[in-house]
Design a protein around this nucleic acid. Sequence first.
DNA 1: CTCACAGTTGCAAGCGCTTCCAAAACCGTG
DNA 2: CACGGTTTTGGAAGCGCTTGCAACTGTGAG
Lengths: 343, 343
Amino acid sequence: MPGIKDVAERAGLSVATVSRALSGKGNVSPRSKERARTAAAELGFVVSYQASSLASGRNHNVGLVVPSVHRWFFSSVVEGVSATLLDAGYDLTLYNVSEGRERRHSVLNDFLLRKRVDAVIAVSLELSEAEIDQLLAIHRPIVGIGGPLPGASTIRIDDSGIAEAAARHLIQLGHSKIAHMTGDAAYEQDFRLPGTRQAGFKKAMRDAGLALRPEWQVSADFTIQGAYANARKLLGSSPERPTAVFAASDEMAIGTILAARDFGLRVPQDLSVIGIDGHELGEVFGLTTFDQDARGQGALAVRRLLARFDGAGDTAAAHTEYPTRFVIRSSTAVPPLEQGPIR
Amino acid sequence: MPGIKDVAERAGLSVATVSRALSGKGNVSPRSKERARTAAAELGFVVSYQASSLASGRNHNVGLVVPSVHRWFFSSVVEGVSATLLDAGYDLTLYNVSEGRERRHSVLNDFLLRKRVDAVIAVSLELSEAEIDQLLAIHRPIVGIGGPLPGASTIRIDDSGIAEAAARHLIQLGHSKIAHMTGDAAYEQDFRLPGTRQAGFKKAMRDAGLALRPEWQVSADFTIQGAYANARKLLGSSPERPTAVFAASDEMAIGTILAARDFGLRVPQDLSVIGIDGHELGEVFGLTTFDQDARGQGALAVRRLLARFDGAGDTAAAHTEYPTRFVIRSSTAVPPLEQGPIR
DNA sequence: CTCACAGTTGCAAGCGCTTCCAAAACCGTG
DNA sequence: CACGGTTTTGGAAGCGCTTGCAACTGTGAG
């Protein structure tokens, strides 16, 4: 395995000049630069980031902390981050902290602090103040996606806004018996998303003068199967059935649609369902949803960091509201005709 | 940020002894070890893997190369690998090479060769001989999951065997009009899975003396939505419908079930469907399948590597056949009564 | 009491780079 | 042609750790 020394020798230059030539830092005559480059290419030389980082402090590596790798949003972000990073020649160190607090704690402590990463992207993590301080203490850029992260830059969609818009969409279609499937309390603790979206829903309902029936406020774990199970309860046991369900994620919306089918309910004729995400399966189910381009959010986070690395050193924490797109498909429609007493 | 020097000072030991005490290599008296440990703990010291790896050649970092992070099998493997690695104090560098050959090429070349990783886990990648040579040339342990990887250790399930068993299950129920949904040719190139499973299917059919109708051999991209689209064609256009479908993955089986429902076909009364995977959604759809514990495969791969690192230096390439579990749910049953001419 | 030996320890030489610093080479002017 | 200023270059000092080596300690046997 060739080292920079070999390159220097072959190019007839000093190690220092080769280093500068290949990294692009410092002044090097075009001629030397060219020489160094060809010599490196001929030898198949590629710098050791280990050594490079020891000497320079830069790692060419960013850490991505996600709470799961299975759920749509997270894997989409991972994809976007990964692709953008790879293109830029950076490594991606993945920290999947799905298994509870100790895992998370050890990741933050033992891993990120080892200075192995130049920056951290934290997805939908609700961190304690101590944890945030810890992160900020390593003096590396941090960007949070899909969740608040005081002190760091964040990229997020207008959760409460689109939740409100989703609910309003149903209301405008004529629905008044609207159920909401939100995230489990357990998730609220970690992500805080559910609450924000729920707030938007409630606002829309209140603004329309509609009642919030507690038995129509259900929750699940953000998965299709979890939502399916709970939607069955919602649709099966209620003395009166809602005519529409607003699910806080597409996966939960899909679970709801599957449950509805089990009861012979047609979507949208008997039940309207709307979600949030832009999940690939949305098409299959004709799901009306707000498309938040998760992949794009991941890519944006990386671009942000890269800009920072390149010295466009805007150290100030910037908060970006990522745009969403309302996609109307066939899972929402006007409510069925009232079957009860003539109104 | 404290260095090993600070620890040495505080413990009243030399840097060398502290290094040995903390790494567990070489002889250190219990007393010194204890001292070094407490000093390190008090200072919150944690070795810099950068420096450590420069000096020792060991990275505490393994590279995981996956063709996608969205599909069930891959994200499950990622999860297993990640958890096991984190527990062992190793970092995971993720290389998602979903976007074609150049990406893959650059990953192999520029990234893995930088010696940033102690080992490589390659999931379901069909590599060219040159690529394999390249990988082997870096003299790091490699383990392949779910695909052949000549020269490296592999962990895989008995693809053709369970495919055969799946088909036999249908045959034994009395089916003879069995369709097979395999992977796209595009995937065959990369993963070779489809072919192996297809071979098992064909064998079972041949052994039972059943005909393989070309129009019942369909393929998709291993996703629910892809399978859904193609299953619609299969079930909608055939002059004669199959009574059972064997899908090469659970995701494709689910897509098939969704398509069947669209046509008013009841599963399993009108159509039996069987898959392979053990996908979380299997429960929701009552899917009969072979559970291959993908998470477990990832974990096993890591344990294998860790053992190697610890000097249980069995350098020989070992091939493990990972066990699967046949899970019978409600998507398979005896075929419907023949509707055609009296037999 | 001495010797051989195994168990401990510290010194110092790197690991492969980056970067500070000073020297060398170059440039256009006066 | 000499001069100051600007590039370009190479020497060498690290970055924070590991590890070969030699020196040292303590032990039980002779």
